[in-house]
C-alpha cells in the first residue's frame, strides 16, 4: 500500500511541477491615459557649455518606432531655452551633437564654472518652466590604474580622497578612444555618496567600459553579443591592452544626488513586484496646472586618462580626451 502511495505521490508531485512551470501569461492592461508633459535632460559641466535636450513623455504602452520617438523631441521651433549665470543670459542654440538624437540646445556664451549657480528657463507652448543647479568645487582624482583580470582584460580602478566633515556626492563616468564624445556612467549606479566613508580614501575598482544608456534607441549590444553574453563578458565590459581610457569624476550637489538616486531606485524597482515603485525626482518647476519631468544638473568635473600600453606599463595621458 505504502509503495503504491509513494508512486502516486511522486506522480502527483511531478504533475504539480509541470503545471507550476506554465503560469506566466501575457495580459492587456487597461491603464488610464496620461497627458504628455515636458521632459528636460539638461546639464552644465565645469569648463563646458550648457547642454539641454527637450522632449515629451509618452503613454506607457505607446508603440514606438524611430518616427514616433523623433516626434517626441522638442526643437527650437517649439521651445526657447535660456541659461543664466546670474549676470549673463545665454539663449541656447539648437546645434548638432555626436549623440542621438544628434541635436540639442547648447550654450555659446559661457562655460560652467566651479562654485557657481546656473538658472534655467524654458519657454514652451506659451508657458515658462524653470530650474536651478549648482556646480560644486571639484575633487581631484588621485590615481587611475588598471587591474588585469586576465592576460588581456582589465578593469579600471579610480581613487580619490573624500573631504571630511562635509557631505559629498559624486558621479563617475568613463570612456575609451572608440567611444563618441560622451562619457558613459561607469555602471548602472554611477553615483557615490560619502555616507559610509566620510573623509576616507574612496576607491572604486569596477570602473569598466561603461553602460550605454542609449539602448532605448540604438542598442549598445548587438543581438549576437546578447546571445553570447557570458562568453563575451570580458570583451563587452573590460578594457584591453592598447586602450586609452578616460575617467571623469564629478561632484554634484545634494539635490542632484537625490535625483540620480531616485533614478537608480526607479531602475531597480522597474517591474519588480517585490518593492514599492520609485518615482524619479525632478528639479524642474512647472507652471500651475502643468507637469514636468527631468533634471538640470551641474557637474564639478575632474578628468584623468591613461593609455594601457601593456599589462605592466600604463602611461598617463592627461585629462579629458
Amino acid at each position: 500500500m505504502r509503495e503504491n502511495l509513494l508512486k502516486i505521490s511522486i506522480i502527483v508531485v511531478l504533475l504539480s511541477l509541470v503545471a507550476i512551470s506554465s503560469c506566466i501569461k501575457d495580459i492587456t492592461l487597461d491603464l488610464p491615459q496620461s497627458e504628455p508633459c515636458l521632459v528636460v535632460d539638461g546639464y552644465v559641466d565645469f569648463d563646458d557649455y550648457p547642454v539641454v535636450f527637450l522632449s515629451k513623455s509618452t503613454a506607457y504602452f505607446q508603440e514606438l518606432d524611430s518616427n514616433a520617438v523623433n516626434d517626441l523631441q522638442i526643437n527650437d521651433t517649439k521651445a526657447t531655452v535660456i541659461v543664466s549665470d546670474g549676470s549673463i543670459s545665454d539663449t541656447l542654440q539648437y546645434l548638432p551633437i555626436q549623440r542621438w538624437p544628434y541635436k540639442c540646445f547648447m550654450g555659446t556664451k559661457f562655460k560652467g564654472e566651479l562654485n557657481h549657480r546656473y538658472d534655467l528657463k524654458i519657454l514652451y507652448e506659451g508657458k515658462t518652466y524653470t530650474s536651478s543647479t549648482y556646480i560644486p568645487d571639484t575633487i581631484k582624482i588621485d590615481t587611475v590604474f588598471p587591474t588585469f583580470m586576465s592576460d588581456s582584460f582589465a578593469v579600471m580602478r579610480i581613487n580619490w580622497r573624500d573631504p571630511k566633515y562635509q557631505s559629498n556626492y559624486y558621479t563617475i563616468h568613463v570612456k575609451n578612444q572608440f567611444q563618441p564624445m560622451y562619457y558613459r556612467p561607469y555602471a548602472l549606479n554611477h553615483i557615490v555618496s560619502d555616507k559610509l566613508a566620510d573623509g576616507e580614501e574612496m576607491s572604486f575598482a569596477m570602473v569598466v567600459k561603461g553602460l550605454e544608456r542609449n539602448a532605448y534607441y540604438d542598442n549598445f549590444f548587438t543581438q549576437e553579443e546578447r546571445d553570447s553574453f557570458i562568453n563575451k563578458l570580458g570583451d563587452i565590459f573590460c578594457f584591453r591592452e592598447g586602450d586609452s581610457v578616460s575617467l571623469k569624476l564629478s561632484t554634484i550637489d545634494n539635490v542632484s544626488y537625490n535625483i540620480w538616486e531616485s533614478w537608480y531606485r526607479n531602475y531597480l524597482t522597474d517591474g519588480n513586484p517585490f518593492t514599492n515603485p520609485a518615482t524619479v525626482k525632478t528639479n524642474i518647476i512647472a507652471p500651475d496646472g502643468q507637469d514636468a519631468k527631468g533634471f538640470w544638473i551641474g557637474y564639478g568635473c575632474n578628468y584623468r586618462s591613461v593609455y594601457l600600453y601593456s599589462k605592466d606599463s600604463v602611461v598617463p595621458i592627461g585629462g579629458k580626451f
Binding site: S34, S57, V280
Partner: peptide, 19 residues
Amino acid sequence: TTLPVASYMIDGDYVNVYG
C-alpha cells in the same frame, strides 16, 4: 498594485512614470 502609466527618456534611457 501600482503600475507605470507613462514613460519618458532621459540621459539616453527611458524612465517610468507611475500612476
